[in-house]
């Protein structure tokens, strides 16, 4: 079957619509066309490292880290329950778990806007119970809540897929040798599930760092994460050089984090989704 030329349209497509656009991002980060032709500049890259922008980058990473930790703490027990053999009707529960993910993530974020409003449903219920009301919409807390809500399945599914493949006899062996459940968990189950945990972390952390929608809707118009900063450069300020530089730095940091993570994740078992 010598049909290599069939890939040609695809390769051309990817060259034009993936490689060249990335080269353009690179180009706009480092080159500037002035009245006397195109010249090299590091001005845009340097601006990324100004304190106000570093603060935004730092906040994006901090919020993403916090959300990832919440997802892990909430998601790991859920994955264990889904993978446990005592569970009846497991397939049904898993489909039920995946369904919200198929709903547009804007819709899910919007749903939280309506719940968290000052006279929203949560506060109505709290008032009816004569409890103090909360006002967390347009704060860090609402943004973290939105991230955890949107990305929790990305943490649960990879962990679940690894946990459900663990050989039961290994766990039984640990029990036979006298390990209590806690010891069995920390010495056997958790280490075996690490590949799933790592891909879960990557899959939550990546979209959490780069989002600009959750922060805009739940954080309010003035709320700035690196995604909002990039969006602003391209759609409001029209500063392509700075926007490209921000994107470039963001991609570099993400590639580095993922590179370090996947080095630990030697067998790529955990990467599978379904």
């Amino acid at each position: 079957m010598k049909r290599k030329f069939l890939t040609t349209p695809y390769m051309l497509w990817m060259l034009i619509f993936t490689i060249i656009p990335l080269i353009l991002v690179f180009y706009f980060s480092f080159f500037e066309s002035g009245p006397d032709g195109i010249k090299f500049t590091t001005e845009y890259i340097e601006r990324v490292f100004e304190p106000i922008y570093l603060k935004v980058i730092f906040r994006s990473f901090a919020l993403a880290v916090i959300s990832t930790i919440f997802c892990l703490v909430l998601g790991y027990p859920m994955a264990m329950i889904l993978a446990s053999r005592e569970l009846k009707r497991r397939d049904f529960l898993i489909v039920l778990f995946v369904v919200p993910m198929w709903m547009n993530f804007l819709a899910r974020t919007y749903a939280w806007m309506t719940l968290l409003e000052n006279n929203g449903i949560i506060n109505q219920i709290l008032m009816a119970l004569s409890l103090p009301t909360i006002s967390i919409l347009y704060t860090d807390k609402a943004v973290i809540l939105g991230m955890v809500y949107n990305f929790l399945p990305f943490m649960v599914l990879p962990i679940y897929s690894v946990l459900s493949k663990i050989d039961r006899s290994i766990i039984e062996a640990a029990e036979d040798l006298g390990a209590n459940p806690l010891r069995t968990f920390f010495k056997v189950i958790f280490p075996l599930s690490l590949p799933g945990v790592l891909s879960g972390i990557i899959m939550v952390f990546m979209p959490a760092v780069t989002t600009f929608v959750i922060s805009r809707l739940l954080g309010g118009g003035q709320y700035m994460l690196i995604g909002n900063l990039i969006e602003q450069q391209f759609l409001t300020t029209g500063d392509w050089g700075f926007g490209s530089s921000l994107s470039l730095i963001l991609m570099l940091i993400l590639l580095l984090t993922m590179g370090i993570m996947s080095k630990t994740d030697k067998d790529r078992e955990g990467g599978r989704f379904f």
């Binding site: 656009p21 353009l24 991002v25 990546m206 979209p207 780069t210 600009f212 995604g227 994107s247 993922m258």
Partner: peptide, 26 residues
């Protein structure tokens, strides 16, 4: 070819969005 196929899956949405926008305007 395989790595080229992974590239869009791995790069953040926002970077894909702005890079394509740059191309189209360019």
């Amino acid at each position: 070819t395989l790595n080229l196929t992974y590239l869009p899956l791995l790069s953040p949405d926002i970077v894909m969005g702005i890079s394509l926008m740059l191309l189209f305007i360019f």
